[in-house]
Write a protein that binds this DNA or RNA. Structure first.
Lengths: 144, 144
DNA sequence: CTTGACCTTCCAGTAAGAGGAATCATTAGG
DNA sequence: CCTAATGATTCCTCTTACTGGAAGGTCAAG
């Protein structure tokens, strides 16, 4: 299979597949003409990678998952550990975003959003430490 | 004020402040010795930037917010527009993360996490299109 | 034989800085 | 006055996970 074929079959852009080869995630053979020659197993790996990435696993996670995937003697605990770590990262990010959302939505609500220059959003961003107006503030801030 | 002073006062790393000068967000003066000489107004800008960044605004948003901040004739609607756009981005990301979390937590629950090699997580990642086992799948996937 | 679809490599750019090296300036202590 | 410790400067590389594009080789169809 050429790169176009695996690209279609795996759903990954050809660019991405070349990149994955670059960083050693797949090692396709080469045809006489210099074209990459992908085996079924390469296609499986790429599909695996695509799915792992779509779940938000980092490339490094993917590398480890792939290793475990190909290790018939793996312990499912190792896989679970990676997934749990990723879940933690997701939860952290969600909390961070939720805090930002909180603060921001309060500010947006408080802003008239008309032709006048008065704007609680700017007021908040410009606020000196200490002269906090209401309790719309100090929410997302302290999270980071 | 030297860079160390504004760094302490604004809470931003000196590296970041230099970077912000690089990309034109602040323009401190220079002392005879070549040191950056920050005015009060520069400090205000930097604090403003720090707060905007902590709310997740992109540098580009920050640039626009700063412009509006310094424009006495601004319309609060313009500020609100930027904030609303950012809120949308936050919501998108949260939805994405929530979908991943969903799928992933199901898989983690289903995994024994012991010494044995059988692992629903790997099984899911390796699954051929079509032979979907349960409805733990196809959740986060189609979101992206 | 040419056209167009594929394929190749290499280079640069993204966001938003972080880390570090080499060098210069300032200041406090002995 | 000399020295050591800070603190400042610039410049370069690295990070994540690709994406875009240029310049050029290959292949099948007409």
């Amino acid at each position: 299979m050429n790169i176009g074929d695996v690209s279609r079959l795996s759903g990954l852009p050809a660019k991405t597949i070349r990149y994955y080869e670059d960083i050693g995630l797949v090692e396709p053979l080469r045809s006489n003409n210099g074209y990459r020659a992908f085996r079924e197993s390469d296609l499986h790996k790429l599909a695996f990678l695509g799915r792992a990435r779509s779940l938000g696993f980092t490339i490094d996670d993917c590398r480890n998952l792939l290793k475990l995937y190909q290790d018939r003697d793996r312990a499912s605990a190792d896989v679970r550990q990676i997934a749990l770590g990723h879940l933690d990262r997701i939860d952290e990010k969600m909390a961070e975003l939720a805090a930002m959302r909180e603060t921001l939505s309060h500010l947006v609500e408080a802003c008239a959003g008309d032709h006048r220059p008065d704007c609680p959003i700017l007021a908040d961003l410009a606020a000196e430490e200490g002269e906090t107006p209401a309790e719309t503030r100090r929410t997302a801030r302290n999270a980071r």
